[in-house]
């Protein structure tokens, strides 16, 4: 599904290059569940952002579903992104001024899905994640775990093939974290490819494969 070939990313600091990613190559098959681990500053979030098409490498090749992402026009890339990728953040990043229902609905609006279909999908999501009763609440009225569940529901509303999660449990207590991880495992069993960045050994264990990073390189 994903082939990363010799990715480099650097910043120029005072005339010398400071590498964030250094010759990273990685193959990810459909249905995989990968945990990227490593200390702060090792480049794991950058790698995730590049996979999620939010960032670009300075050098290297990125093939997503047999298409070269880096040579693609912005519009095409955004289409690809919309239809295949969902993103979950450590800080949830829900839209504060929208209700739970509307947060889940927003990506569907961007995908130009009809209002009737949207209703069905959102209802399905609310049902699936057991948050039907909270659909009219605003993010500020939810606990952290609940917000993250909404975040995941939002990421999954567009039925992506790939779910990217940047420390999804980082702001949660261990019980809430466990619930989220169970949810991920179940999603993976249903066929969603998952890549997560985590600090926690325990959470990493949920993945099928663990990738370790240090100083911008895979170990």
């Amino acid at each position: 599904m994903i082939q990363l070939k010799h990715l480099f990313k650097w910043y120029n600091v005072g005339g010398t290059r400071s590498f964030v990613l250094k010759d990273v190559s990685l193959d990810i098959a459909e249905g995989d569940f990968i945990s990227i681990m490593g200390p702060s500053g090792s480049g794991k979030s950058t790698l995730l952002n590049i996979i999620g098409m939010l960032d670009e490498p300075d050098e290297g090749e990125y093939i997503f579903m047999d298409e070269n992402v880096l040579e693609m026009k912005a519009k095409k890339r955004s289409q690809l992104y919309q239809s295949h990728i969902g993103y979950v953040f450590q800080a949830y990043h829900l839209l504060d001024e929208l209700t739970v229902y509307e947060n889940i609905e927003t990506p569907l609006i961007y995908k130009d899905i009809s209002s009737k279909e949207r209703k069905a999908i959102v209802a399905d999501m609310l049902d699936r994640f057991g948050i039907v009763g909270k659909k009219d609440l605003f993010p500020a009225q939810l606990s952290g775990g609940q917000q993250q569940i909404v975040g995941i529901a939002r990421a999954l509303a567009g039925s992506p093939k790939l779910l990217l999660a940047d420390e999804p449990t980082g702001n949660l207590n261990s019980k809430q974290g466990e619930e989220i991880m169970e949810l991920f495992k179940q999603l993976n069993d249903d066929g969603v490819t998952i890549i997560q960045v985590t600090h926690s050994e325990k959470n990493a264990e949920y993945g099928k494969r663990i990738v370790n990073m240090l100083d911008g390189q895979l170990k």
């Binding site: 999620g52 939010l54 992104y81 993103y87 927003t106 961007y110 990421a155 567009g158």
Partner: peptide, 15 residues
């Protein structure tokens, strides 16, 4: 932040 989120959940610039 709102703009960032919207972009990551699929909003194009024109939207």
């Amino acid at each position: 932040k709102e703009i960032g989120i919207r972009k990551t959940i699929g909003s194009s610039r024109s939207t």
